[in-house]
């Protein structure tokens, strides 16, 4: 991979590696599904605490798998009407898979993401304390950005000269302090990556292979 980055004729190697990884990952998917079923079947058979959830997991998994692979409810592609499986598996209003996606997966995923708003509120209440100078600076910045990101920033600070208005200050904080901090972290991280990759390539750190000592 490193060679292919610098040597133009070797650049296609990268694609080949990627394809191999995809193939491996596809097999791994079967492995994962098998493991999932095994774990939950074990839980159900031994009536472990919460085995009811395992039943739901197994049923949901199998139903989605069958509906998705079997393209249940999908009409064939207009260009190939003789092939029943040629249709779009996400055909709105007809495909069962689409129904699962639209009315089960979509609301569930959006709900989990929306939980963030609640957790942010509770984390802000609990953890955002002005313990020292750094924390006070952080609090001040958070206050400006939180207000500046809404219309309140404009109403409350409209009377100030333009560069001091909260919405403008927010832009300034994001452009200057945020970019500078992020760049520093990025440089540190990339050096960390180089160092770790090198250690792995040189065999200095082999713990990830499980072959240490």
């Amino acid at each position: 991979m490193i060679v292919s980055y610098f040597v133009p004729p070797a650049q296609s190697w990268k694609d080949d590696f990627a394809i191999w990884f995809e193939i491996l990952a596809a097999f791994a998917f079967v492995l994962g599904a098998g493991n999932l079923l095994k774990m939950h079947l074990q839980k159900v058979s031994s009536r472990q605490a919460g085995w009811g959830f395992s039943v739901i997991t197994i049923v949901a998994f199998l139903v989605t798998l069958v509906v998705g692979l079997g393209k249940v409810g999908v009409n064939p592609n207009a260009a190939f009407p003789e092939y029943a499986w040629s249709g779009n598996k996400m055909e709105p209003g007809s495909s069962w898979f689409w129904y699962i996606f639209e009315y089960v997966y979509l609301p569930l995923a959006a709900t989990m993401f929306a939980l963030l708003a609640f957790f942010i509120a509770s984390a802000a209440f609990r953890a955002f304390r002005a313990k020292n100078i750094e924390a006070i600076l952080l609090l001040g910045t958070a206050f400006i950005v939180l207000i500046g990101r809404t219309y309140a920033g404009i109403i409350l600070t409209d009377w100030l000269p333009e560069p001091l208005r909260f919405d403008r200050l927010t832009e300034f904080i994001m452009d200057v302090f945020n970019s500078a901090g992020n760049r520093a972290i990025m440089i540190g991280i990339s050096l960390g990556i180089v160092s770790l990759s090198l250690k792995i390539l040189m065999g200095v750190d082999r713990s990830y292979l499980g072959s240490e000592e």
């Binding site: 791994a28 492995l31 994962g32 493991n35 713990s207 990830y208 499980g210 072959s211």
Partner: peptide, 15 residues
């Protein structure tokens, strides 16, 4: 990820 599971199993077992 199932590949991570495999890797983690080997690592933990070795540890």
């Amino acid at each position: 990820r199932s590949l991570v599971m495999t890797m983690a199993r080997e690592t933990v077992e070795a540890a």
